[in-house]
Design a protein around this nucleic acid. Structure first.
Lengths: 121, 121
DNA sequence: CGATTACATCGACACACGTCAATATCTACT
DNA sequence: AGTAGATATTGACGTGTGTCGATGTAATCG
Protein backbone atom coordinates (compact mmCIF):
# COMPACT_ATOMS: atom_id res chain seq x y z
CA UNK A 1 0.00 0.00 0.00
CA UNK A 2 1.49 3.22 -1.11
CA UNK A 3 -0.29 5.90 0.86
CA UNK A 4 0.79 4.98 4.33
CA UNK A 5 -0.80 6.74 7.25
CA UNK A 6 1.70 6.10 9.98
CA UNK A 7 1.85 7.48 13.48
CA UNK A 8 2.52 10.93 12.08
CA UNK A 9 -0.56 10.86 9.87
CA UNK A 10 1.51 11.93 6.92
CA UNK A 11 0.29 10.57 3.62
CA UNK A 12 3.34 10.29 1.55
CA UNK A 13 4.65 9.28 -1.81
CA UNK A 14 4.30 5.97 -3.64
CA UNK A 15 8.10 5.99 -3.71
CA UNK A 16 8.20 4.38 -7.11
CA UNK A 17 11.63 5.52 -8.12
CA UNK A 18 14.27 7.87 -6.86
CA UNK A 19 17.60 7.87 -8.55
CA UNK A 20 16.57 4.82 -10.52
CA UNK A 21 15.56 6.27 -13.81
CA UNK A 22 17.01 9.64 -13.14
CA UNK A 23 20.37 9.89 -14.83
CA UNK A 24 20.77 13.15 -16.72
CA UNK A 25 18.95 12.97 -20.04
CA UNK A 26 21.96 14.29 -21.88
CA UNK A 27 24.39 11.81 -20.35
CA UNK A 28 23.18 8.25 -20.39
CA UNK A 29 20.84 6.27 -22.66
CA UNK A 30 17.25 6.01 -21.52
CA UNK A 31 15.37 2.76 -21.96
CA UNK A 32 11.65 2.49 -22.57
CA UNK A 33 10.78 1.65 -18.98
CA UNK A 34 12.73 4.52 -17.48
CA UNK A 35 11.25 6.93 -19.98
CA UNK A 36 7.75 5.86 -18.98
CA UNK A 37 8.51 6.43 -15.32
CA UNK A 38 10.03 9.81 -16.02
CA UNK A 39 7.13 10.82 -18.24
CA UNK A 40 4.74 10.14 -15.38
CA UNK A 41 6.61 12.62 -13.23
CA UNK A 42 6.59 15.32 -15.87
CA UNK A 43 2.90 14.71 -16.54
CA UNK A 44 2.20 15.86 -13.02
CA UNK A 45 3.85 19.18 -13.87
CA UNK A 46 2.15 19.46 -17.25
CA UNK A 47 -0.95 21.26 -16.08
CA UNK A 48 -1.37 24.96 -15.27
CA UNK A 49 -3.59 24.38 -12.25
CA UNK A 50 -1.15 21.90 -10.73
CA UNK A 51 1.74 24.30 -11.29
CA UNK A 52 -0.23 27.02 -9.52
CA UNK A 53 -1.01 24.68 -6.65
CA UNK A 54 2.61 23.61 -6.37
CA UNK A 55 3.61 27.25 -6.41
CA UNK A 56 1.08 28.20 -3.73
CA UNK A 57 2.22 25.36 -1.49
CA UNK A 58 5.92 26.00 -2.06
CA UNK A 59 5.71 29.71 -1.40
CA UNK A 60 3.65 29.34 1.75
CA UNK A 61 5.47 31.00 4.62
CA UNK A 62 5.29 28.02 6.94
CA UNK A 63 6.25 25.60 4.19
CA UNK A 64 2.82 24.09 4.12
CA UNK A 65 -0.58 25.19 2.89
CA UNK A 66 -4.10 24.29 3.95
CA UNK A 67 -6.19 22.77 1.16
CA UNK A 68 -8.92 25.16 2.16
CA UNK A 69 -6.73 28.06 1.03
CA UNK A 70 -5.99 26.56 -2.38
CA UNK A 71 -9.44 26.48 -3.96
CA UNK A 72 -10.15 30.17 -4.37
CA UNK A 73 -6.75 31.25 -5.81
CA UNK A 74 -6.83 28.82 -8.74
CA UNK A 75 -10.45 29.55 -9.62
CA UNK A 76 -11.56 25.94 -9.96
CA UNK A 77 -14.14 23.87 -8.12
CA UNK A 78 -13.27 22.10 -4.89
CA UNK A 79 -13.41 18.61 -6.47
CA UNK A 80 -11.14 19.71 -9.28
CA UNK A 81 -8.58 21.10 -6.87
CA UNK A 82 -8.81 17.95 -4.78
CA UNK A 83 -8.17 15.90 -7.90
CA UNK A 84 -5.09 17.89 -8.85
CA UNK A 85 -3.69 17.67 -5.34
CA UNK A 86 -4.09 13.92 -5.54
CA UNK A 87 -2.12 13.82 -8.78
CA UNK A 88 0.66 15.89 -7.24
CA UNK A 89 0.70 13.65 -4.19
CA UNK A 90 0.79 10.42 -6.18
CA UNK A 91 3.63 11.84 -8.23
CA UNK A 92 5.55 12.34 -5.01
CA UNK A 93 5.81 16.07 -5.54
CA UNK A 94 3.83 16.96 -2.43
CA UNK A 95 2.96 15.42 0.90
CA UNK A 96 -0.32 15.79 2.74
CA UNK A 97 -1.08 15.63 6.40
CA UNK A 98 -4.51 15.73 7.96
CA UNK A 99 -4.65 17.65 11.20
CA UNK A 100 -8.13 17.88 12.65
CA UNK A 101 -10.53 19.22 10.10
CA UNK A 102 -7.94 20.45 7.66
CA UNK A 103 -5.41 18.86 5.34
CA UNK A 104 -2.01 20.48 5.01
CA UNK A 105 0.14 20.13 1.94
CA UNK A 106 3.89 20.58 1.64
CA UNK A 107 6.33 20.06 -1.21
CA UNK A 108 8.83 17.20 -1.35
CA UNK A 109 12.04 19.00 -2.30
CA UNK A 110 13.98 15.86 -3.16
CA UNK A 111 11.49 15.00 -5.86
CA UNK A 112 11.95 18.33 -7.57
CA UNK A 113 15.70 17.90 -7.30
CA UNK A 114 15.44 14.51 -9.00
CA UNK A 115 13.66 16.03 -11.95
CA UNK A 116 16.09 18.90 -11.99
CA UNK A 117 18.97 16.50 -12.23
CA UNK A 118 17.40 14.75 -15.20
CA UNK A 119 17.50 18.03 -17.08
CA UNK A 120 21.08 18.80 -16.13
CA UNK A 121 24.03 18.53 -18.46
CA UNK B 1 5.96 33.23 -38.67
CA UNK B 2 7.56 31.15 -36.05
CA UNK B 3 9.47 28.47 -37.90
CA UNK B 4 11.94 30.66 -39.74
CA UNK B 5 14.03 29.08 -42.46
CA UNK B 6 16.85 31.54 -42.77
CA UNK B 7 20.07 31.27 -44.71
CA UNK B 8 21.20 28.48 -42.44
CA UNK B 9 18.07 26.45 -43.05
CA UNK B 10 17.65 25.96 -39.35
CA UNK B 11 14.05 25.63 -38.26
CA UNK B 12 14.02 26.98 -34.79
CA UNK B 13 11.84 27.69 -31.84
CA UNK B 14 8.68 29.76 -31.62
CA UNK B 15 10.56 31.72 -28.95
CA UNK B 16 7.43 32.30 -26.94
CA UNK B 17 9.05 32.93 -23.60
CA UNK B 18 12.46 32.71 -22.11
CA UNK B 19 13.01 34.02 -18.65
CA UNK B 20 9.53 35.50 -18.70
CA UNK B 21 7.53 32.98 -16.80
CA UNK B 22 10.51 31.18 -15.48
CA UNK B 23 11.18 32.34 -11.96
CA UNK B 24 11.80 29.45 -9.60
CA UNK B 25 8.51 27.83 -8.59
CA UNK B 26 9.46 27.91 -4.95
CA UNK B 27 10.42 31.57 -4.96
CA UNK B 28 7.89 33.83 -6.59
CA UNK B 29 4.14 33.67 -7.12
CA UNK B 30 2.97 32.25 -10.43
CA UNK B 31 0.00 33.82 -12.18
CA UNK B 32 -2.43 31.91 -14.37
CA UNK B 33 -0.87 33.00 -17.64
CA UNK B 34 2.66 32.06 -16.65
CA UNK B 35 1.48 28.70 -15.35
CA UNK B 36 -0.16 27.97 -18.70
CA UNK B 37 3.03 28.79 -20.57
CA UNK B 38 5.09 26.67 -18.23
CA UNK B 39 2.66 23.79 -18.44
CA UNK B 40 3.04 23.77 -22.21
CA UNK B 41 6.77 23.26 -21.82
CA UNK B 42 6.38 20.40 -19.36
CA UNK B 43 3.74 18.80 -21.58
CA UNK B 44 6.42 18.33 -24.19
CA UNK B 45 8.41 16.32 -21.67
CA UNK B 46 5.41 14.37 -20.45
CA UNK B 47 5.60 11.53 -22.94
CA UNK B 48 7.91 8.50 -22.88
CA UNK B 49 8.54 8.53 -26.63
CA UNK B 50 9.50 12.20 -26.60
CA UNK B 51 11.84 11.63 -23.67
CA UNK B 52 13.50 8.81 -25.57
CA UNK B 53 13.83 10.98 -28.65
CA UNK B 54 15.29 13.83 -26.63
CA UNK B 55 17.69 11.38 -25.05
CA UNK B 56 18.75 9.93 -28.40
CA UNK B 57 19.35 13.39 -29.83
CA UNK B 58 21.15 14.67 -26.75
CA UNK B 59 23.46 11.69 -26.46
CA UNK B 60 24.40 11.65 -30.14
CA UNK B 61 28.14 11.96 -30.45
CA UNK B 62 28.07 14.87 -32.89
CA UNK B 63 25.40 16.68 -30.92
CA UNK B 64 22.83 16.08 -33.59
CA UNK B 65 20.86 13.10 -34.80
CA UNK B 66 19.33 12.25 -38.16
CA UNK B 67 15.56 11.71 -38.03
CA UNK B 68 16.14 8.57 -40.02
CA UNK B 69 17.99 7.07 -37.06
CA UNK B 70 15.24 7.87 -34.56
CA UNK B 71 12.39 5.73 -35.84
CA UNK B 72 13.71 2.26 -35.16
CA UNK B 73 15.00 2.82 -31.57
CA UNK B 74 11.68 4.05 -30.21
CA UNK B 75 9.64 1.33 -31.90
CA UNK B 76 6.95 3.60 -33.28
CA UNK B 77 5.82 4.35 -36.82
CA UNK B 78 7.52 7.05 -38.85
CA UNK B 79 4.49 9.41 -38.73
CA UNK B 80 4.31 9.04 -34.97
CA UNK B 81 7.99 9.86 -34.55
CA UNK B 82 7.62 12.80 -36.89
CA UNK B 83 4.72 14.05 -34.80
CA UNK B 84 6.68 13.84 -31.56
CA UNK B 85 9.66 15.59 -33.08
CA UNK B 86 7.34 18.38 -34.11
CA UNK B 87 6.06 18.72 -30.56
CA UNK B 88 9.61 18.88 -29.22
CA UNK B 89 10.54 21.46 -31.83
CA UNK B 90 7.51 23.66 -31.18
CA UNK B 91 8.28 23.50 -27.48
CA UNK B 92 11.72 24.90 -28.26
CA UNK B 93 13.46 21.87 -26.82
CA UNK B 94 15.07 20.84 -30.11
CA UNK B 95 16.09 22.44 -33.38
CA UNK B 96 15.91 20.86 -36.79
CA UNK B 97 17.95 21.47 -39.89
CA UNK B 98 17.36 19.95 -43.28
CA UNK B 99 20.53 19.09 -45.16
CA UNK B 100 19.91 17.44 -48.49
CA UNK B 101 17.70 14.45 -48.03
CA UNK B 102 17.97 14.25 -44.27
CA UNK B 103 16.76 16.30 -41.33
CA UNK B 104 19.09 16.71 -38.38
CA UNK B 105 17.88 17.37 -34.88
CA UNK B 106 19.80 18.91 -32.00
CA UNK B 107 18.81 19.93 -28.49
CA UNK B 108 18.45 23.54 -27.37
CA UNK B 109 20.35 23.54 -24.08
CA UNK B 110 19.08 26.92 -22.92
CA UNK B 111 15.54 25.64 -22.99
CA UNK B 112 16.35 22.76 -20.69
CA UNK B 113 18.19 25.16 -18.41
CA UNK B 114 15.12 27.38 -18.24
CA UNK B 115 13.01 24.48 -17.04
CA UNK B 116 15.72 23.42 -14.67
CA UNK B 117 15.73 26.84 -13.11
CA UNK B 118 11.99 26.73 -12.57
CA UNK B 119 12.47 23.66 -10.40
CA UNK B 120 15.33 25.16 -8.42
CA UNK B 121 15.07 26.38 -4.88
C1' DC C 1 12.08 12.17 -66.65
C1' DG C 2 10.90 8.34 -63.75
C1' DA C 3 12.00 5.86 -59.62
C1' DT C 4 13.38 5.78 -54.96
C1' DT C 5 14.05 7.39 -50.38
C1' DA C 6 13.17 10.69 -46.40
C1' DC C 7 10.08 13.31 -44.02
C1' DA C 8 5.70 15.75 -43.18
C1' DT C 9 0.72 16.03 -43.22
C1' DC C 10 -4.03 14.23 -43.14
C1' DG C 11 -7.89 11.61 -41.46
C1' DA C 12 -9.65 8.47 -38.33
C1' DC C 13 -9.87 6.11 -34.08
C1' DA C 14 -9.35 4.84 -29.18
C1' DC C 15 -8.19 6.39 -24.96
C1' DA C 16 -6.67 9.66 -21.39
C1' DC C 17 -7.62 13.81 -19.00
C1' DG C 18 -9.73 18.12 -16.92
C1' DT C 19 -13.91 19.63 -15.22
C1' DC C 20 -18.07 19.99 -12.40
C1' DA C 21 -22.44 18.65 -9.73
C1' DA C 22 -23.81 15.42 -6.58
C1' DT C 23 -22.68 12.62 -2.94
C1' DA C 24 -19.93 10.36 0.62
C1' DT C 25 -16.78 10.59 4.56
C1' DC C 26 -14.75 12.50 8.44
C1' DT C 27 -14.11 15.92 12.16
C1' DA C 28 -15.49 19.39 15.39
C1' DC C 29 -18.76 21.64 17.99
C1' DT C 30 -23.16 22.37 20.39
C1' DA D 1 -27.16 12.78 18.72
C1' DG D 2 -27.38 16.27 15.36
C1' DT D 3 -25.59 19.86 12.66
C1' DA D 4 -22.12 22.19 10.05
C1' DG D 5 -17.84 22.52 7.60
C1' DA D 6 -13.73 20.44 5.05
C1' DT D 7 -12.11 17.13 1.92
C1' DA D 8 -12.42 13.03 -1.00
C1' DT D 9 -14.86 10.22 -4.28
C1' DT D 10 -18.12 9.14 -7.97
C1' DG D 11 -20.21 9.65 -12.39
C1' DA D 12 -20.79 11.99 -16.51
C1' DC D 13 -19.35 14.91 -20.23
C1' DG D 14 -16.44 17.32 -23.64
C1' DT D 15 -11.88 17.87 -25.23
C1' DG D 16 -7.15 16.68 -26.00
C1' DT D 17 -3.63 13.37 -27.41
C1' DG D 18 -1.02 9.27 -29.16
C1' DT D 19 -1.22 6.16 -32.76
C1' DC D 20 -1.27 4.40 -37.47
C1' DG D 21 -2.27 3.87 -42.59
C1' DA D 22 -2.57 6.51 -46.52
C1' DT D 23 -1.05 10.26 -48.97
C1' DG D 24 1.64 14.44 -50.07
C1' DT D 25 6.09 16.82 -50.80
C1' DA D 26 10.83 17.27 -51.59
C1' DA D 27 15.44 15.75 -52.76
C1' DT D 28 18.64 12.35 -54.92
C1' DC D 29 20.07 9.28 -58.41
C1' DG D 30 20.11 6.63 -62.66
Amino acid sequence: MSKSTGSTGVRDLPVLDLADCCAPLRREPLDAEASATLAEAFKALADPVRLQLLNLIATAETGEACACDLVEPVGKSQPTVSHHLKVLREAGLVQSQKRGTWVWYSVVPSRLEDLRRVLSR
